[in-house]
Design a protein around this nucleic acid. Structure first.
Length: 569
RNA sequence: UGGGGCGUAGCCAAGUGGUAAGGCAUCGGGUUUUGAUCCCGUGUACCGCAGGUUCGAAUCCUGCCGCCCCAGCCA
């Protein structure tokens, strides 16, 4: 990985602000609303905000935007804290909540009234909507717009005191009902909500709206650069309006960037919830979910996530990034760190007819081909071994380097074997292979210079340990499920396949969450929730790159056959 | 059809008037007891289109086209 600091447009602005002396210290914040789990999109915001803080020796706040009680839960705040930590960032003592500032925000509301730029409106929600106009038609002033300051103050205080029902009144900024920017058509500042807040309990029955609370929270914390996504671009004039009216000691600047969309996934909370409610996935941390919790459970390393986001860059252009980029980051991380092991996902029995019945010998396997320091381990080798079903083909194309009738192949770290006989059941399915082995070809002995094209993985039948292995694939069949009317109609029915695999004995010791490479198959990790020493449960993180699959698919295309006819999964 | 953004190769992305970096993907080739890794090589990008300014434009001007966001007492 390269460590050169990125120079996107936001970092350029920050650099200039430091150079010019506009700021001595950079202060940023990551401000999630605790109403759901964090997802890939948030990873970008987290890395940007905390990254910019770190790079400039500044400070970054983790602030919960908890201004809408009823939709927010403690469960989510704990999950968010865990996710941000897991990604490798530390807010130290800067964990805050918009609700920490409810008192100050309220004071600011009274000040706006005194300034004559806010008023209590007694129109109903429907009437307010009707008065707002449309994108092309200007709105109309509320009949309550010119209430005197004293009356506004009195009404707001009584709203706060709980004298009114939900929806009876609302505090609004007095800006311009004819503004082409809808956000400036007298936006609501405070609404009445007789509902208990997860942190402030029943102390308040009026709660500030996002724009008001967010701007002020930024100002109170001395945020210098308030980084958010593009959809808030239209809110910036309002953000600045608050600052102009209230003139707080610190004046933050809002800068917007485009959000990161991952192909073949969705991130809308509503839709993610539908997947859970519809039992398409097992929960927020299902390994197929694009949530941080899901990706963590899937086995994606935090470093890979950070690298992924870094490769995407920070711009204002809408992006839909290919899965391959993420997968490549994951492979790159794991390729270096994960130890290698052997496992057979779909076993086919192979009997070595000339190998002594009761003999078991230990062969030495390397834990990492590019890093000898990771050492070796011994694997039992015996007369009956299990190989991958699709490493044998009865009628193999010429470029098939694996086992075929009469053909030879090397059992990795073991011997070269030759297929002598194919055993089938009555239905014609291949159930067993009879092979001979060449005693002179044991790995590492150098007693034979025989060379074969292919090397396959295997496991000793008598010593193998069974495990439930989940093979994950993308959740959707189209790159942009969001652009489809009914996203549930493009679900990938094969996003999860569970097989009973046979693992080499050393895998018995795999710890929950630990990742290894199953040679020739991919990276796998023990499930952090369901895996135990007695019942192994393993997730496939990502497959290895598979150029054979490509050759095969290309051949299929040439012959005009459907691409999935023989492709293995 | 009001306002705000965005448009550089399949996907990202540098570039800020001097003649188009890089990554991923693709396609070749080499090494390899993982068809992995690693290493080499591989793209006619009419810089959305059309005009204009200039000795010179992806960069400046004008017009057009396409895509995204905004009419919550959500964030």
């Amino acid at each position: 990985m390269n460590d050169a600091p990125p120079r996107d447009f936001i970092r350029q602005i920050i650099f200039e602000d430091l150079e010019s002396g506009k700021h001595d210290e950079i202060v940023t914040r990551f401000p999630p609303e605790p109403n759901g789990y964090l997802h890939v999109g948030h990873v970008m915001s987290i890395c940007l905000n905390f990254g910019v803080g770190q790079e400039n020796h500044g400070r970054t706040f983790l602030r919960f935007d908890d201004t809408n009680p009823g939709k927010e839960k403690e469960e989510y705040v704990r999950a968010i804290e865990r996710d941000v930590h897991w990604l490798g960032f530390d807010w130290e003592d800067r964990l805050t909540h918009a609700s920490d500032y409810f008192g100050q925000i309220y004071d600011a509301a009274e000040k706006l009234i005194e300034l004559g730029v806010a008023y209590v409106d007694s129109l109903s929600a429907d009437e307010i909507r009707e008065h707002r106009g449309t994108l092309t038609k200007p709105g109309m002033n509320s009949p309550y717009r010119d209430r005197p300051v004293d009356e506004n103050l009195d009404l707001l205080r009584r709203m706060r005191a709980g004298e009114f029902e939900d929806g009876e009144h609302v505090l609004r900024a007095k800006i311009d009902m004819a503004s082409p920017n809808m956000n400036l058509r007298d936006p609501a500042l405070y609404r009445i909500r007789h509902i208990e807040h997860q942190r402030t309990g029943n102390k308040w029955c009026i709660y500030p709206m996002y724009d008001f609370a967010h701007t002020l929270s930024d100002a109170f914390e001395g945020i210098t650069h308030s980084l958010c996504t593009l959809e808030f671009e239209d809110h910036r004039p309002l953000y600045d309006w608050f600052l102009d009216q209230l003139e707080p000691p610190h004046r933050p600047r809002q800068i917007e960037f485009s959000r990161l969309n991952l192909a073949y996934t969705i991130t809308s909370k509503r839709k993610l919830n539908m997947l859970i409610d519809g039992d398409v996935v097992s929960g927020w941390n299902d390994p197929r979910m694009p949530t941080i919790a899901g990706m963590r459970r899937r086995g994606y390393p935090a470093a890979a996530m950070r690298d992924f986001v870094k490769r995407g860059g920070v711009t204002k252009k809408d992006k839909l990034i290919e899965m391959g980029v993420l997968e490549n980051c994951v492979r790159e991380q794991l390729g270096e760190s994960a130890e290698r092991r052997m496992a057979v996902l779909r076993p086919l029995k192979v009997v070595l007819t000339n190998y002594p019945e009761d003999q078991v010998e230990m062969v030495q396997a390397i834990n990492h081909p590019n890093n000898p320091e990771l050492g070796t381990r011994d694997m039992p080798f015996s007369r009956e071994v299990l190989i991958e079903r699709d490493d044998f083909l009865e009628e193999a194309p010429r470029k098939f380097f694996r086992l075929k009738p009469g053909g030879e192949v090397r059992l990795r770290f073991g011997y070269i074997i030759k297929c002598e006989e194919v055993i089938k059941n009555d239905a014609g399915d291949i159930v067993e292979l009879r092979c001979s082995y060449d005693p002179d070809t044991r790995s590492g002995t150098g007693t034979s210079d025989k060379k074969v094209k292919g090397t396959i993985h295997w496991v000793s039948a008598a010593h193998a340990v069974p495990a439930s292995v989940r093979l994950y694939d993308r959740l959707f069949t189209v790159p942009d499920p969001n652009s489809v009317d009914d996203f549930m109609s493009v679900l990938n029915p094969e996003s999860l396949e569970t097989v009973t695999a046979m693992l080499e004995p050393a895998l018995q010791q795999l710890a929950g969450g630990e990742a290894v490479q199953f040679e020739r198959l991919g990276y796998f990790c023990a499930d952090s929730e369901e895996h135990t020493a007695d019942a192994l449960v393993i997730n496939r993180i990502v497959t290895l790159r598979d150029s054979w699959a490509k050759i095969e698919a290309a051949a299929m295309r040439l012959e005009g056959k459907p691409p999935n006819a023989v492709v293995r999964k």
